[in-house]
Write a protein that binds this DNA or RNA. Structure first.
Length: 109
DNA sequence: TGGTTGACTAAGT
DNA sequence: CACTTAGCCAACC
């Protein structure tokens, strides 16, 4: 057995890792998929450990498509660069065509 | 056990 | 349309 926490956070990582390339989702969408729609804050909080996980945290933004968590990344624009590397368009910390690239786990899964 | 925290969201001003 | 306030809930100390 792994020493994984087996808690809410683990679920977040599971879903985040399933985000397809070139797509993004919101904290609330993940939280909702986990059955805790009102725990969107927990999702972001969980992403704090994403550094040690294989979680593409850069694909997770708030519901407006803004890179709210970019501040937690190593570089200032690392998160934006990662998204642009996936073919996304980011401007002023906000993902362009957010509704086009939005990936809802509740619908896709 | 209880209080603080936080990468959110919705509603109000 | 932009900023402020309040509600939310699980993890952490």
């Amino acid at each position: 057995m792994k020493e994984e926490t087996l808690n809410f956070f683990e679920k977040v990582y599971e879903v985040a890792q399933q985000i397809p390339y070139g797509r993004v989702t919101s904290y609330g969408a993940i939280a909702k998929y986990l059955g805790a729609a009102r725990s969107a804050r927990m999702v972001g909080y969980a992403m704090n450990d994403s550094s040690e996980k294989d979680v593409p945290a850069h694909r997770v933004v708030n519901r407006k498509g803004i890179l709210t968590g970019k501040h937690h990344f190593s570089g200032t624009h690392l998160m934006q660069q990662l998204l642009e590397s996936e073919g996304l368009h980011v401007s002023d910390n906000q993902i362009q065509n957010f509704d086009k690239v939005f990936w809802d786990p509740s619908k896709e899964l």
